[in-house]
Design a protein around this nucleic acid. Structure first.
Lengths: 346, 346
DNA sequence: GTGAAAGCGCTAACAT
DNA sequence: ATGTTAGCGCTTTCAC
């Protein structure tokens, strides 16, 4: 039995002694005789009727569902995005379908392609690696997509990006300003967009301070707490007086590595992270971090998607709305982990 | 236009010169003449055909979607559950729809009721307060529900629960075993099921150790990092030598409160949490915590749901399978935050 | 092996 | 104001 024995408008129509069309009208708030309205309402109530959303979707071609595909549901940054997207989606009458892709490209592509099955009306995609496969898939997506991340110009989707280059440079300059001279860098994978951008920002920051790039002070690893611990441990041999980490998880891991070795933070080594996630405030000492506007990016992406969906519905020509790309500026949040060292650096 | 101009089986049928029935058969891997198979496959490829999941759902009454409704997507415990559920769901051919209810009862009820709209085939619900409204909604749910949490016996749903009473008692006994005598308790809200259970376990633990219950050592607050910081700060006046916190977020907050005041952990005050989430390992010092089997509960809940769905499909009588309730045992994970004090307690 | 046709539950012309 | 009917895209009898 295709339907689990649930009442449909047919059952209501019979019970109320009217046609299914009248039932549909009443239930959708259209004009009808007072008497009819009442009988239908009562019948629906008594039967515990709930409209079948699938049938409605088939009829009008929309599911009122949005999909958000992120690399890692365990990262507070994406949690912040989810919250922001959720709020916008809910307000616009959409449910949110979440997908954790583990940053697997094949998974991300599958999500884009699955727009074709009409399970959701639109997609917000947050990839950390963007290859030709992505660009091709995006170009032929069966529905509107908003990408959170950096895309080559001309890609036919809306996008929202963080300016992590500027953010990383800010952090380095800040560390330099507190008297640090050997600023080490714990970065994520070099083949990711965030990884590349942060590396660029780090170098720019060093240059702006007149500091030399020293590859012994730089390490690439995965984004993650344990990775941060391991990387920071290894970096200590190079005697840094500051650790700039490409995200808060790495910074938290680094913090643990330092404290467990009796290294004082910030007296001996300053630590700064990126994302300004919940972790940054929760840590001890509280972590200086570059806010890359995760919530804001989520909010904007959702708005972009919802707006495009609304445009498409009324005008018919969705692509007629030009594609937009917004950049959210970074903001350095200074906390105790980068207080100036009392002793001058060695 | 209800369909965004996407190809349907009709288009494929025309192109391949066969009927839509043949297209459907070929696409579903049923027997057909070699020639037919090829023509259909090719046509589908050329058109970039993707089956419309909505239409399929309407036809066979299933969406292949599962819903997980949790109180707070920011809590690592639920993230762990999501991961476990996701894995089972994916393996069984279901997508996962995530809902963050913020522990608002009305939201939770809405989710249960929305099973009626056939948007998903089943629901995993993780409420922290359970009232009459919940029980009534569960009793008339339009589809299978699995609850992660404690339910009155006889409620017509499958359920998986943690034994947080035993877990809390374990933690208290452990702290006592390391020489602590003034064991304070930072609990969540008293009107939640977890809050009540942990309080009960705390008292049981004290009793087992021959310790007296002292209300000055107990505080109730919200579950959350900042709440933990505030609560721990207040508790210090009562001169505890250990802080047992009802979850890791509270413990992390408490840790921050202690360290910021120069209180040494574990030398002056030991700290223990519950859930053994990622936070416990990330903290410094690493946090002793009671593993309540979040992943395991998620996994079991998903299994229960998937199994019931499978049973219903073949047998027809889904409720014929008796409702099951499983309890996952707690496991104390000892880390540095509760190492024995070198000095005897004052 | 293949096609015609019914029907899943709903909405929206269109007719009355 | 209300009823009849077509149709959204698909699967599945039932004939041939």
């Amino acid at each position: 039995m295709p339907n689990g024995g649930r009442p449909t408008i047919v059952a209501i129509a019979e019970r109320a002694g009217v046609s299914i069309a009248s039932v549909s009208r009443v239930l959708n708030g259209q004009a009808a005789r007072r008497d009819t309205v009442e009988r239908v309402r009562r019948a629906a109530d008594e039967l515990g009727y709930v409209p079948n959303a699938v049938a409605r979707s088939l009829k009008d071609g929309r599911t009122r569902q949005l999909t958000f595909a992120m690399p890692d549901i365990g990262n507070p940054v994406y949690v912040a995005m989810v919250r922001a997207i959720q709020a916008v989606a809910k307000a616009a009458g959409y449910r949110l379908l979440l997908h954790s892709t583990d940053a697997v490209a094949e998974d991300e592509l599958a999500v884009v392609r699955s727009l074709g099955d009409r399970t959701s009306d639109g997609l917000i995609l947050c990839p950390i690696r963007i290859g030709d496969g992505h660009l091709r898939a995006l170009a032929r997506a069966a529905g509107p997509v908003v990408v959170i991340g950096s895309l080559p110009p001309g890609t036919p989707v809306d996008s929202v990006r963080a300016d992590s280059v500027a953010g990383a440079a800010d952090a380095v300059r800040h560390l330099h300003g507190t008297g640090r001279r050997r600023i080490a860098f714990v970065n994520g994978p070099a083949d990711t967009v965030p990884g590349r951008n942060r590396a660029e920002g780090y170098r720019a920051g060093l240059a702006a301070c007149g500091l030399r790039y020293d590859e012994r002070l730089v390490v690439h690893t995965e984004f993650g707490i344990d990775a941060g611990t391991a990387a920071a441990g290894g970096l200590l041999a190079a005697r840094p007086d500051a650790l700039f980490c490409a995200n808060d998880q790495l910074a938290l891991g680094a913090l643990r590595a330092l404290l467990s070795r009796g290294v004082r933070v910030p007296e001996d080594v300053a630590v700064a992270g990126m994302d300004d996630s919940a972790l940054a405030q929760a840590a001890w000492p509280p972590l200086t971090s570059v806010d890359l506007g995760s919530s804001e990016r989520g909010r904007l992406a959702a708005r972009l998607l919802v707006d495009r969906l609304a445009a498409g519905r009324s005008a018919g020509a969705r692509a007629a709305v030009p594609f937009r790309s917004t950049t959210v500026p970074p903001r350095l949040v200074v906390r105790a982990s980068t207080a100036p060292a009392t002793d001058p650096p060695a």
